[in-house]
Design a protein around this nucleic acid. Structure first.
Length: 577
RNA sequence: GCGCUUGUAGCUCAACUGGAUAGAGCGCCUGACUUCGGAUCAGGAGGUUCUGGGUUCGACUCCUAGCAGGCGCACCA
């Protein structure tokens, strides 16, 4: 039920009819026609730019064409109250109130599907997100991307697409060796009373490793901890298992559950890296060569060496990228190419990667590899989530990994809660840096948009409570013959934009549009609510402690949209606060 | 030096894929509580959308040249 799409279809039909008659000419493709709710000052319901779009090809002024169209539109639409042409050529339409009564009847009937974008075909998506190294707990830095990925998946699911949420586990490489060694030293610290080496900068100093060590010691595995080399494989597996357990717990407290965890190590052991490089070699995308030092940087330590390179410059990257290290091991990039081949083999229509800002420079090379393998440019979309600036006590809070004083997801959830974290992290476009002010996020006031939206729902719930009705149960109303006032139509207009919001959030992968929209809807509702203070006729419940059907259904429509929006964002809507 | 990205009210940010007189919140100033829960609302002040060119009927949005901030630029992952 997207009234704008419906209206555009109606306009297109009028245009083709007129062009058949020879009244107007049309371009080959009818693109760029919009229908939207205009700014409030125009005092109308829907507005279209159609006259301006066809102005050029007809060599007539938009105003002139609009006048012609207005007559036709009037003939075709009986629910119009008023229609006018406004410079520079917009056609503005005001409906009779019955239009909105019909609208609300439709969306109440189809409350389960209202908002879903029906234009698009069902597709299979893979969303890869978080993919943090399995060497410790998630910290705040991971949070934004995690929530972004999760909500993008939710939006796509809401639109009936098939979505797989995946986590790529980097359980291969030097960092994992250092991580396992660190666990080993913690075990020795416990078992043999040896101090954890402070001199070795490669080790992980975090105290959580002590827990890992305890867990491994007390597990059922019988391990002789006296010699590292004898047990390194076993210990690596156990350590990663510990880390993943913790990470999954962290994700869970954020309300995130992945469908798959794909192991880098397994890809390497299954020779998938060799296979994909072989494939690229046959297609002439791989060669032995040297990488040049970047200009303008201190290159005194630069060592030129010959290594296996991928020709990402063929796809617009600034340099070709190394696939193999000098010791013969695959680079992270090489196994990631194999991982993306693996994704492509699973026949998804679209791949989406969520990356942190610090990995933005990586996008060109990985999308180059996907293009080389799939021969398709738009298969992979990478979405970058910008930094989160933490603010505590009005001051920026810097985290230092070395010192181990970083804020973990656990800290965050304990202090702020899941809902506030999700809502605030999502409230801004992922393209801009985000200020995350602890004091503000905890505050239960209008400064906090989460509570503002929740409060709207709670107010509606309280009306239902007073009437001893259940907000979540279906309402049946036999006669839809009431008329809504202009105050109410203002809110209904906003509701009519809900499908548009979902559509753009989904097409552009910009879920921040949802909290923004919900805030605006809540704001209109709060204003409306307060009208009842000065004017008791505008209250929902009248003096006989009853509610009229139009008001009941009106509240229901608002709460439905708020609920479905908050579901996508992944936060609760309490009936009492 | 190169690449990506951001630049909109004092501050934090929106702006329906190019639309009309650019909108919210915070902060500041006025006002509304024996409330269908004030975690709310009404009103006011506040703008050369970083700068210069270009495309267009029409530009915060697209192109181009700059300026400023952020991120990145080997075999780390």
């Amino acid at each position: 039920m997207n009234i704008f799409d419906q209206y555009i279809d109606k306009l297109k039909k009028i245009l083709t009819d007129l062009s058949k008659k020879g009244t107007i000419s049309l371009p080959d493709k009818l693109d760029g026609i919009t229908a939207e709710i205009p700014p409030e000052k125009f005092n109308c319901d829907i507005s279209t730019n159609v006259a301006m779009v066809i102005s050029k090809i007809n060599k007539k002024s938009p105003i002139e064409l609009a006048e012609i169209l207005v007559d036709e539109i009037k003939k075709n639409d009986k629910l119009i109250n008023d229609i006018s042409v406004v410079k520079p050529g917009f056609i503005n339409i005001k409906f009779q109130p019955i239009f909105w009564t019909n609208f609300i009847q439709e969306i109440i009937k189809n409350s389960k599907t209202f908002g879903i974008n029906t234009k698009e075909k069902k597709k299979k998506y893979l969303v890869e997100f978080v993919s943090a190294n399995p060497t410790g707990p998630l910290h705040v830095g991971h949070c934004r991307g995690a929530i972004l990925g999760d909500v993008i998946a939710n939006v796509l699911l809401f639109n009936n697409h098939k979505v797989t949420k995946e986590y790529y586990v980097n359980d291969y490489g030097n960092q994992i060796i250092n991580f396992t060694k660190s666990v080993y030293f913690r075990i020795r610290e416990i078992k043999f009373n040896e101090p954890f080496p402070s001199y070795n900068e490669d080790l992980y100093p975090g105290a959580y490793l002590i827990d890992f060590a305890h867990n491994i010691i007390s597990s059922k595995n019988k391990i002789d901890f006296s010699n590292f080399d004898n047990i390194s494989d076993k210990l690596t597996a156990l350590s990663i298992e510990e880390a993943l357990k913790l990470i999954k717990k962290n994700l869970n407290s954020l309300g995130i559950v992945h469908d798959n965890f794909v192991s880098e190590k397994k890809l390497v052991l299954n020779q998938e890296v060799e296979k994909v490089i072989d494939f690229l070699q046959k297609n002439n995308f791989v060669y032995k060569g040297k990488i040049k030092a970047p200009a303008g940087e201190d290159t005194s330590n630069w060592v030129e060496r010959e290594q296996l390179l991928f020709k990402s410059t063929d796809f617009g990257d600034d340099k070709d990228r190394a696939l193999q290290k000098s010791d013969g091991a695959w680079t992270y990039f090489a196994s990631d190419v194999a991982y993306h081949k693996n994704k492509l083999d699973r026949n998804f229509d679209h791949l989406i990667n969520i990356l942190g800002a610090d990995h933005a420079g990586y996008i060109k090379r990985i999308s180059s590899s996907v293009e080389a393998i799939s021969k398709s440019k738009n298969k992979l979309v990478c979405k970058v989530s910008q930094l989160v600036k933490l603010i505590k006590d009005k001051k920026p809070f810097k985290m230092s990994k070395r010192k181990g004083d970083y804020i973990t997801v656990d800290d965050l959830i304990n202090e702020v809660g899941k809902d506030a974290t999700r809502f605030i992290m999502l409230n801004r476009s992922s393209d801009v840096e985000l200020d995350f002010d602890f004091d503000n996020v905890i505050e239960k006031s209008k400064d906090n948009p989460l509570y503002y939206v929740q409060y709207c729902y709670a107010r509606i719930a309280s009306v239902f409570r007073h009437l001893e009705l259940n907000l979540s149960s279906e309402i049946e109303i036999k006669k839809f013959d009431f008329e809504y006032s202009s105050d109410e139509i203002k809110i209904l207009k906003k509701i009519s934009e809900w499908p548009k919001c979902i559509e753009s959030a989904s097409n552009k992968l910009e879920p921040h549009r949802i909290p923004t929209y919900l805030y605006e809807l809540a704001s209109l509702f709060h204003s409306y609510w307060n009208l009842g203070k000065d004017n008791s006729e505008k209250r929902f419940i009248n003096n006989d402690k009853k509610i009229t059907d139009d008001k009941l259904i009106f509240l229901k429509a608002i709460s439905n949209v708020v609920k479905s929006g908050m579901d996508i964002v992944g936060v609760n809507v309490p009936e009492k606060m």
